[in-house]
Structure formats: C-alpha cells, structure tokens
Amino acid sequence: MRIPAAGTVPWRVQEGGLEVALVHRPRYDDWSWAKGKLDDDEDWAVAAVRETEEETGLVVRLGPPLPEARYTLLGRDGSPDDKVVRYWTARVTGGHGHLVNEIDEVAWLDVATAHARLDYARDRDQLLALVRLQQTERLDTWPLVLVRHASAVARNEWSRDDQLRPLTAVGRARSADLAPVLAAYGVTLAVTSPSERCLRTVEPFANAVGVPLRTRGGLSEEGFAADPTKAHRHLTRLLERGEPALVCTHGPVLPDLLDELARRLDVEKPASVEVVEAFAEARDERLVKGEALVCHVVGTGDAARVVAVERHLP
C-alpha cells in the first residue's frame, strides 16, 4: 500500500546564520521534520501546511519544493507499505507555537547541529537541498501564481453576455479545492479578470483568507483582444511589487503572460533543467482549466527570476 504524506522544513536567518526547525516525537524518541499523512482527497501542499501547524502551532508559507523521501514501513498486518513524503521549504508567517499532536519539542538549529541531530539519513537530503538553495540564491522567494479559470458553461450553451458565463458544477468544485492550495503559498494579493468564470474561480480563496479581489479589464478575453499590452503591464507591476500574488485569467491571455515569465526563468542555476521542462509543459498546454501554476520568484522588477515552478492540476 502507498502512504502519501507531506511536510515542511521551516527556515530563518538569525544573526546572519541559517537555521531550520526540527521536531521531536516522544513516541519514537526521534528528531525529524514536521510532517503527516494526507487526508482523503487532500492536496500535498495543503497537507504540508496543515501538518506543520498541527504539530508545531506555526503557520507557514510554502517556498520551493525539496526532494521527497520514500521508504518502506511494516503495516499492522505485517505487509510492507511504501511511504512517500513530499517536502517544501517554509517561512513562518504566524501561529501560537504551542506544541500539539505528538510533538514535545521544536528546536531551531543551525545547519551543522541539525544535520547531526536528525535521526534518519533520508531527512538530511532535504536539509542539504535547502542549503544548496541558499548558496545559489534560490531560497528567499515569493510566489506568483497563474490560475486559469475553472470549467464554465460552454459558449454554445450560453446566449447572454459572455463575461457573465458561469462555472459548471465541476468548475465550482474545483474552485473550492483551489482555495486551500492558494492559501498554502501565502497569497495576499489577488488580481483577476472581471469575467464571472474567473471571479468565481478564486472567490472561495479570497473569502476564506480575507483577500480582496482586484479586477482588471485587461485580463479579460475582451480586454486582451482590444489591447494585449495591458495584461503584460499588470504582470509587470506584480513583478515589481514582489508580494505573494495570484493572477486569474483566460486561455487566450495566458501565452503572453507565460512568455514573459519564460524570459525570467533562472536557467543558469543548478536544477534549471527540471524547472524549464515543467514550465514548458504548462506553457504548451496554456494551463488546463482550473490549474494553478506556482512560480517561485527571487527578486523584483527587472531582476525578478523564476527559480522553481509547481503545477497544481484539477
């Protein structure tokens, strides 16, 4: 049986030195990363944030992903189970810090001390990867998320203004599923096409976290057809601002936005091949309806570079 789990490696810089947060589980008397099993139909990223808060009391914002861990456990019936744990770097954004859920201590340690204290060799893979991200200036990132609206009523089934065309039941379900995914990346700025199908795609997220939706006509199909430069300017402003943000728009608008982000791919750093391939795949498909493409960005303005990407598909 396959057991999916997710966790984080929270990090901070104290007096110029990198520190990471380990957790101690008294049941096993071991030191490891905050992690836990996925709930039914739960997204991996959502589980990583939830488990971190449940175990440490800390609210985190996900950064670039880290190597996953795979190992075998014996089930209750004695049969082998394959456990797969996905990890992310994480910044602490809030929380009470009270220890809960099988954890009796959280320790912020420098890299050398953390490396020595971790009880499992597999956990050192995430630590070393995080250190490499810092050394190559890819650790301190902010997320820019492109969202293609979820499934809407077909054009040939709608006789009114196209901007009022609503989501289908499938689209509404995807909209609800997207809300915790966007929250996991700490999005605080939401910019969207004013078309109904875009607004309703990101509305559950906005309502859940209290982020206002800012509509931009240049991100609509009609606005883009009238003046393609406006969508590009909206993206440029977000890159200048450097705040965790999302842009929700339409299939015909996405190629221009993706072209601009493609020019900002950091192809000179290690692991750039994987980033380029993942981005190219999403770009070729113009994102599928209801997809969120998370671009982890370093820097702002002309210096902004995309150093990691993740596809969250319906």
Rank of each mutant, 00 (worst) to 15 (best):
R2P: 11
P4V: 05
A5L: 07
A5S: 03
P10V: 00
R12I: 01
R12F: 03
R12P: 01
V13N: 11
Q14Y: 10
A21C: 04
A21Q: 00
V23F: 06
V23C: 04
H24E: 02
R25S: 15
Y28P: 12
S32N: 13
W33F: 10
W33E: 05
W33N: 06
D41Q: 12
A48C: 07
A48E: 04
A48F: 07
E51W: 12
E51N: 13
E53S: 09
L62D: 07
L62E: 08
L62I: 11
P64I: 10
P65C: 14
P65V: 14
P65K: 14
L73T: 15
L74G: 12
R76S: 15
S79D: 12
S79Q: 14
P80R: 09
D82H: 14
W88D: 05
W88S: 06
H98F: 13
V100L: 14
V100D: 12
N101I: 08
I103L: 04
D104H: 00
D104I: 08
V106L: 13
V106D: 11
A107C: 09
V111L: 03
A112H: 09
A114P: 05
D119A: 09
A121S: 14
R124F: 03
D125H: 12
Q126E: 11
L130Y: 01
L130T: 00
V131W: 04
R132N: 08
R138M: 03
R138K: 09
L139T: 12
W142G: 08
P143D: 01
V147Y: 05
R148Q: 11
R148K: 11
R155N: 14
N156D: 15
N156H: 15
W158I: 03
W158E: 00
S159K: 13
R165G: 04
G171T: 06
R174T: 10
R174N: 04
A176I: 11
D177N: 13
L178P: 02
L182Y: 00
A183P: 08
A183F: 06
A184E: 01
L189A: 12
S193H: 10
S193R: 07
S193I: 09
P194V: 13
R197E: 02
L199W: 08
R200S: 04
V202D: 05
E203S: 13
P204Q: 04
A206E: 07
R214C: 10
R214W: 11
R216V: 07
R216K: 09
G217H: 01
S220E: 00
S220P: 05
G223I: 07
F224A: 03
A225E: 06
P228H: 08
A231S: 06
H232F: 09
H232K: 11
H232G: 10
H234Q: 01
H234I: 02
R237G: 02
E240R: 05
R241P: 00
E243L: 11
L246D: 02
C248Y: 09
C248K: 10
D256I: 15
L261W: 07
R263T: 13
R263H: 15
V267H: 05
V267T: 05
K269D: 13
S272E: 02
S272K: 10
V273T: 12
V273L: 11
V275Q: 05
E277R: 09
A278P: 10
A278L: 14
A278W: 11
F279D: 03
A280V: 12
E281L: 15
A282K: 02
L287I: 02
V288T: 15
K289F: 13
K289H: 14
G290V: 07
E291H: 03
A292R: 06
V297P: 04
V307K: 01
R311D: 01
H312D: 08
P314F: 10
